[in-house]
Amino acid sequence: MQRKLLTLAALLCAASAQAQSSVQLSGAADVYVGSMKMAGDANRKTVANSGGMTTSWFGMTGTEDLGGGLKAGFALTSFIQVDDGTQGRFPGDTFFSRDANVSLSGNFGTVRLGRWMAPNFLPSVLANPMGDSFTFAPLILHMNVPLFNASGWKATTPSDTGWSNQIVYSTPDINGFKANFQYQLGEQPGNNGKKNIGANFFYFGGPLLVTGFYERDQVSNPGTGTYLGTTKKDWMLAAAYDFKVAKPYLSYGQAKADNAPGSAKTLQLGVSAPVGPGALLASWAKTDLSASNLNRKTLTVGYDYNLSKRTDVYAMVMNDKITLQSSGTSFGLGIRHRF
């Protein structure tokens, strides 16, 4: 009888422990077909590519309730190119380049160690109607996607959308206000003083969103990275307001390197409007390079149709122009599934 009681007690303890912990597998699979021609491209390219509206990814996240309002957490998530099964966003990308971190959270906020979003990423995603589309969102393209063609266009973001080897403090929600303070250890032999520092903030006040970020970067990403050879600074302020019939977006930011003249100044205007079970989307971005009097203008319009809460299909048309370069127009039709 005593052995049975001990066994029952052990099972109850195990069940209690499992109830206080959770591990979740999640991700997004996004593939589109299209005809792509960016500014400066010599020829048009027909593609079936991954990540039309969201960079495809998968991975695990989990939390454990430690009691007293304290929780431990982890995130191990990886990007994947669903069109051909290749891991990562590009050749040489680290396996868990999306997330690789552990955290402690409570009433004080959250402290996180490891690889996580850079300060620039989430504000830029929330500040435009196409979200985290590295294919069709003009703001994201100007900030994060270099063009390997005759234009020689370079991304304005100093050091990737994710930082490795970082220490992050995230504030609790204070009447709709949240902020993150981030420090990336450079880990550079002979350059131990090199580092990345930055912060971002978010204010959610009913239909109003106000957000922004600041970065001071000296180290590249992903992985351990290398010294950039200079200090690069980048900032942006943005706002959006949901009028129900339409949601306008506005953002403005600048990027500058200490070893180069001038700066890159980016203005973005966007709007989303619910139509049927989906939304009409439009966004325009202009980046002026003050040292060369060159600029880039990109306009995207499209429709995102929700088949369910987790699955949507979309159609996008994009026009891209850079001073002194041939312009390009791209078309894409895709499907995105979240799990």
Rank of each mutant, 00 (worst) to 15 (best):
T135P: 08
L104F: 15
K4S: 10
G106D: 10
F213A: 02
S220R: 03
N49R: 08
A137N: 08
T230C: 10
D83Y: 09
R112C: 01
D41Q: 02
P207G: 13
V271S: 11
T135K: 09
M60W: 14
G212F: 01
F339C: 12
V102I: 15
Y183C: 02
A39R: 02
L208A: 14
G276P: 04
L5Y: 01
F331G: 10
F201C: 07
G270F: 05
T94Q: 13
Y227T: 05
Q268L: 09
V275F: 01
A17P: 00
S330V: 01
S327K: 09
G85R: 06
N196Y: 13
F181M: 07
G162K: 06
K233L: 05
N259G: 13
A315N: 03
W284P: 01
A39S: 12
G88H: 03
K309M: 05
L289T: 11
Q184V: 02
A29E: 00
S103K: 11
A118E: 00
P261C: 06
M143S: 14
L185T: 07
I80D: 02
S283R: 01
A75L: 04
E64I: 06
S272E: 07
Y227N: 13
L76Q: 00
N180M: 04
L299I: 14
K244Q: 12
S21D: 12
T7K: 05
T230F: 13
T156D: 09
G205F: 14
A9F: 04
T266D: 05
L25S: 12
L228P: 06
L8T: 00
F134A: 06
T300R: 02
S16R: 00
D99S: 13
L324N: 15
A118S: 15
M36G: 07
L299V: 15
L70N: 10
F181D: 02
D312C: 05
V145K: 04
N149P: 10
F108E: 09
Q182K: 10
G190T: 06
N259V: 11
N295G: 14
L299C: 11
N49P: 00
F331C: 07
N191R: 11
N107W: 08
G212D: 04
M36Y: 15
F201I: 02
Q182F: 02
S56G: 15
T266Y: 05
F79I: 02
A72T: 05
G198A: 09
T298Y: 01
T135C: 08
